[in-house]
Amino acid sequence: MLNVLVVEDSPTMRQLIGFAIKRIPGSRVIEATDGVDALKKLSSEKIDIILADINMPIMDGLKLVSLVRNNPSYKSIPIIMITTEGAEEDKNKALAIGANAYLTKPIQTQELMKLVNSFIS
């Protein structure tokens, strides 16, 4: 079973990402609405990969990535950032703090699946 944690404040995006992820055989989507909610889910579930938005209320995606990377229990979990920011500096910033990959909105479901699959294999 592949547990994918989708951290997004937008219900529309959570549903769309969930749609794409569920097409990967043996996958299960766990939803979180912000960084704090994501940390709760991380402590209660075994997560294999994290898909996180950058702009979120309470705790944003960048803060979440740095907390995950500094926690020995979660630091090896691959993280894919999904965001509206398309600038190279935003991308570099996310990758510098420990994100493994970066996707910009509007997302293409096949592109997302391909990326997730690359981390599974």
Binding site: S10, P11, T12, M13, Q15, L16, T84, K105, P106
Partner: peptide, 24 residues
């Protein structure tokens, strides 16, 4: 998402989410 609520402000929020996240 558009038909998931009858709250006017919520519907406006969903329309905006669609335009931001799906249209770009």
């Amino acid at each position: 998402q558009l038909h998931s609520t009858l709250d006017f402000n919520e519907v406006l929020r969903v329309v905006m989410e669609i335009i931001i996240n799906l249209v770009g």
